[in-house]
């Protein structure tokens, strides 16, 4: 499994907004890295630059020795099939069944006509069943995606990413629209699966306690720049202030904090995602 290295990556949108400002990162094989930061810090843009759903303005993204930023359209598609992605609002195609959604993860490997007729190779089908078993959805195969609950949908999203047999997993706010318990279950599932398969993963997450709980390494992003890079233990109130701005980081909900929804970026972000 290759290492992901990001060198001097910059993204300036057509509107002139500088979303990412010369970010450099090396994520070794098998590491689960959490990317934290306030809304608008550039977390989503950064991971979308890795598989070029967003075209970076300058800088390089290397997966192993392949420079993704230099690939043409066809080669890019080949690279993308080795990069799995899990989305904030699950991003399942709602009118397709669970099985079709999972199999859509194989699109990069099968030809157009096979995918049009839904005739996927036997191996793909059996992989899909194995993964659906693993994420606990074995009896939902023919349900339409919009019949599932949030947690179930995210499990389908995870199976879709993993059936790509990826080298790298990009995870964009996987728990933003889930309740606290389901959030933990989903994060646990993702980290377990990464460990089982020795997957490298970049996880955007706004929930700091969750990041501390599940990630081996935390990178803090603020206004497009890295302001923290270290182990979860290093996330002191000082560091959090550097990432998110001034706030009483030791206060818990019970001790009262009237302006919490305004200054706790996670809450704001979750609201926006609705």
């Amino acid at each position: 499994m290759p290492t992901l290295s990001i060198n001097d990556l910059t993204k300036r949108y057509a509107t002139g907004d500088l979303a990412i400002d010369q970010v450099s990162l090396v994520i070794p094989e098998g590491q689960v890295m959490a990317l934290i930061g306030p809304s608008g810090a550039g977390k989503s843009t950064l991971i979308r630059c890795v598989n070029r759903l967003v075209e970076p303005t300058s800088g390089d993204v290397l997966l192993g020795d392949q420079n993704i930023t230099k690939l043409g359209a066809r080669k890019l598609r080949r690279a993308r099939r080795h990069i799995g992605m899990i989305f904030q609002e699950y991003a399942l195609v709602e009118r397709l069944t669970v099985m079709e959604n999972v199999l859509s993860g194989r699109l990069g490997y099968v030809g157009f006509w096979a995918s049009w007729l839904r005739r996927f190779p036997k191996q793909d089908i059996s992989d899909a069943f194995t993964l659906l078993d693993r994420v606990g959805l074995a009896d939902m195969v023919d349900k339409r995606a919009d019949e599932l609950s949030g947690g179930q949908r995210q499990r389908v999203g995870i199976a879709r990413a993993l059936i790509q047999n990826p080298d790298l997993l990009l995870v964009d706010e996987p728990t933003a629209s889930l309740d606290p318990k389901t959030s933990r279950q989903i994060m646990r599932l993702i980290t377990e699966l990464c460990r089982e398969r020795n997957l490298t993963a970049v996880v955007n997450i706004h929930d700091v306690p969750l990041a501390k709980l599940f990630a081996e390494r935390v990178v803090g992003l603020q206004a497009g720049q890295i302001v923290f890079d270290g182990s979860p233990e290093g996330l002191s109130p000082d560091v959090l202030t550097r990432i998110y701005g001034e706030e009483d980081w030791l206060a818990t909900a019970e001790t009262g904090n009237a302006d919490m929804p305004e200054s706790e970026p996670g809450v704001v972000e979750a609201d926006r995602s609705l």
């Binding site: 709602e94 859509s104 993860g105 194989r106 699109l107 157009f112 790509q164």
Partner: peptide
């Protein structure tokens, strides 16, 4: 259409035609 669904299919490495079939057609 819902952009995130289209983005998800694109991120799997689907070709343009496959993208039309899986992301656009159902929607």
């Amino acid at each position: 259409i819902d952009r995130s669904q289209a983005e998800a299919i694109r991120s799997t490495g689907a070709s343009w035609l496959q993208w039309l079939d899986y992301a656009i057609r159902p929607q």
